[in-house]
Design a protein around this nucleic acid. Structure first.
Lengths: 231, 231
DNA sequence: GCAAAAGTGTTAAACCTACACCCATGG
DNA sequence: CCATGGGTGTAGGTTTAACACTTTTGC
């Protein structure tokens, strides 16, 4: 760390790309309508400046809570965007996060000042402020990769889910057909799903068994060098 | 981006973990001896504050050039460390990078103000300033993972290398024995190595053919959805 | 001719892929 | 009884893993 230059004038922000997966259609992204300039009235990722005495992780969590009443089930650092000129006002370096929430957040809470927060389908996003479209692209790419070697998909489902929901989720995220039988065999072979006594009731057709993901067992296996992997 | 709070007082720095691989032993990390407080006289990663009108990537490149006369063959963002208290003076958020250099950097340039830059074996690091040990740990972990699904190892070798050098590199980084025959078959099967007419002269035993890595072909294949992978 | 590293094939096991029919439910 | 989605097995091909001897060179 050198630095003998005048006074650095750079702001540090955090922004989050939070994905949700509701009603078996496309992935959704959480956006906030801006009520200040620049891009006033436009849509942007939730986020904001980091407080002086606040860790980065805490800052994102705070912003998500304040702006949308959301506590993601999964949240990890994505990438730091800091090019000159990405914010027209002054230099802002933004540490971005990738978040995943379960379907209980479909209806955004009426508590909090969340009235300008909204879910948008990944394929029908509005024009976005700053370089936020790039950030979303980066997040999507990461999610697509990550879901193939870490069991993060479960964070987008309810605690209890039918197998077909998992199937649809993977089809949606990876964006291609999967072989139902092979997929089930593979997932089941890891022994990470616990069968419950419940059955999926909504929808037509034969009701499917509900499963839960065994997080503890996964952690255990992981420590022994096990790698979740789909191909 | 909310922010109506007083004035944010956070500095933005970049730091780099640059790895080198020389004389077939352990991986080496580039460290700089600090000549200012805090940790004056101690060892730290190369890096420093970002200039107001400078992109993050440019900032790391500049610092590496200034502090050690090095231009890495491979350089990518690693992680952003920004916890309160990681710098005893004031709040510093550090965007860290992972860099790889080829063996021509073994002797650090006499140009530049590089006299306090030095290579340290990954297993014999001195006490490090700030949270730099954590950063190195993160970088090592990333390198170990990355080398298994992206051909980054070649950036640690000379343009022309013997197969055994590649072998040793993988053994060193992954930290376990590999089957020479299977490894060679696998690598060769990708058709990404060009045979040269040269032979390795140093060392005893039968001289090995020298190869070069075909970067162009790799880029091409990559665009067609090809994934380099070792297992 | 000895020590040191380079070069090379085969076989069994594991894993992946492709593929189609019957089952349980609600209407 | 029909429509809808749930649940299941097998065979062929590909990939991985394990394993040891011959070749070339310098000394």
């Amino acid at each position: 760390m050198a630095g003998s230059k005048k006074l650095q004038d750079i702001k540090v922000a955090v922004d989050a790309v939070v994905f949700g997966y509701f009603d078996k259609k496309e992935l959704q992204v959480l956006l906030i309508q801006r009520n200040i300039e620049p891009f006033k009235g436009g849509w942007a990722l939730p986020g904001g400046l980091v407080l002086d005495d606040e860790n980065l992780d805490d800052a994102v969590k705070r912003e998500l809570c304040e702006e949308a009443g959301i506590k993601p089930d999964f949240l990890e650092q994505l990438y730091t965007f800091g090019n000159v000129g990405r914010d027209p006002r002054n230099r802002v370096v933004s540490v971005t996060y990738l978040g995943l929430v379960n379907p209980s957040y479909h209806e955004l809470a009426a508590d909090s000042d969340a009235d300008d927060a909204q879910w948008f389908g990944i394929n029908s996003l509005p024009e976005l402020a700053f370089d936020h479209q790039t950030i979303i692209d980066t997040a999507l790419k990461r999610l697509r990769t990550k879901i193939q070697y870490q069991p993060v998909g479960f964070n987008l489902l309810n605690g209890e889910f039918a197998f077909s929901e998992l199937e649809n989720l993977y089809k949606t995220i990876v964006g291609q057909e999967i072989d139902r039988r092979n997929f089930r065999k593979k997932i089941m072979s890891y022994g990470l799903l616990n069968e419950t006594d419940n059955f999926k009731k909504e929808g037509s057709g034969r009701p499917g068994k509900m499963f839960t993901f065994n997080q503890e067992k996964y952690k255990e296996l992981e420590e022994q060098g096990f790698y979740f992997e789909l191909k």
